[in-house]
């Protein structure tokens, strides 16, 4: 596994130590996953969520959230009511 590439895809800064350890561990973990290759899954539908409930969908209608200002309070950095981040362009 190309650890650096995957970590960048996941936006994760890894320490040098983590990179070395992960590289080795991922190898053996992926090796451990190899067992799955033995299973014949031809034509088997993937199971994503283990429930077959089928309920009605949410009826359209809006509700104003009374905790909206509390939710903005916990932002690490704001300007007015907007979230502030480094320049994105």
């Amino acid at each position: 596994m190309d650890i650096e590439n995957v970590a960048s895809l996941a936006r994760l800064q890894l320490s040098e130590d983590e990179k070395i350890k992960f590289k080795e561990q991922m190898g053996s973990i992926l090796n451990y996953f190899e067992d799955l290759k033995d299973v014949n899954t031809e034509g088997v539908e993937a199971l994503v969520t283990p429930t077959d409930i089928n309920k009605d969908y949410r009826k359209d209608g809006s509700v104003s959230w009374d905790k909206a200002s509390d939710a903005l309070e916990i932002a690490p950095l704001k300007k007015g009511n907007l979230f502030q981040v480094p320049p994105v362009v």
């Binding site: 799955l36 899954t41 199971l47 994503v48 283990p50």
Partner: peptide, 13 residues
């Protein structure tokens, strides 16, 4: 990986 695991998950269920 992911899709294969989901398929075997179906068999397991």
């Amino acid at each position: 990986y992911y899709n294969k695991a989901c398929q075997v998950r179906r068999l397991l269920q």
